[in-house]
């Protein structure tokens, strides 16, 4: 799989400006149809690239291959691509969740350690309400999934279009940066404490994060 993606990256450089733009839009759009078998997807992308390259050598237009409406053509291809097996999708999901918690735990740990040792703020051992932590965790996962989905939708929407850089910067900055950040802050700030409490030293977050990270790595290798 890696080999075919590498070959694609190399060969793509040989396309002229116009063909490259249209092909890379096609590539992005098709790759972002996330529930399709990766192997079949990469193979068809390679075939299309080979074909386009031959057309270019013959002095023919990309339209000969993709028709007048490339997005419609891409949809036709996506429609015929087989779906990923559900086991693989489950593994990918597990991987995403593990990485998300790994990063959250390490971030939380580092922040608390810096606060304590550098700024002499807060305590080294913290008390957490299990109920609150559980609910917050679920909500954050939901927000993260929503942001990810939104990013994919946006990227697919922007394929085959000329989007102004300023618009893109402002729009994506607010939608995928500011908004989720405020949402996270809102959740953590306003969530009342409930459920039994546990107290432990914050540096435990670091090993927990590392374990979660390796779990993610392991799942990733199985995909």
């Amino acid at each position: 799989m890696e080999a075919i993606i590498q070959a694609n990256n190399q060969k793509r450089k040989l396309l002229n400006e116009k063909n490259k733009k249209i092909y890379e839009d096609m590539l992005m759009y098709i790759r972002l149809s996330y529930d399709k078998s990766e192997e079949e997807t990469e193979e068809i992308l390679m075939e299309l690239l080979d074909h386009l390259f031959i057309l270019q050598e013959e002095g023919k237009d990309a339209e000969e291959l993709f028709g007048e409406d490339p997005q419609r053509y891409a949809d036709e291809i996506i429609n015929e691509l087989p779906k990923t097996v559900s086991k693989k999708r489950l593994l990918l999901f597990g991987m995403g969740v593990s990485y998300f918690f790994a990063v959250s735990a390490m971030f939380q740990g580092l922040l608390s350690i810096i606060l304590f040792y550098v700024f002499n703020q807060s305590e080294i051992s913290q008390t957490y309400s299990v109920g609150t932590v559980l609910v917050n965790t679920c909500l954050s996962l939901g927000v993260a999934a929503l942001v990810l989905y939104g990013i994919i939708r946006y990227l697919r929407w922007s394929c085959f279009k000329q989007v102004s850089k300023v618009f893109e910067f402002v729009f994506t900055g607010i939608l995928f940066g500011v908004l989720p950040f405020c949402l996270f802050m809102f959740i953590f700030y306003f969530m009342p404490s409930f459920g039994p409490t546990i107290t432990f030293d914050v540096y435990w977050f670091i090993p927990i994060g590392i374990v979660l990270f390796f779990m993610g790595q392991k799942l990733r290798k199985q995909v």
Binding site: I4, E40, E43, I44, E47, L48, H51, L55, E64, L65, F66, G67, Y73, E76, I77, N79, E80, L81, P82
Partner: peptide, 22 residues
């Protein structure tokens, strides 16, 4: 149009009427 064969090739593979090999 030359591109029109690719969706069909994908469908024929899905229906296991043809196999492709790199």
């Amino acid at each position: 149009s030359e591109g029109s064969i690719y969706p069909i090739l994908l469908r024929l593979q899905k229906e296991q009427l043809i196999v492709g090999e790199m």
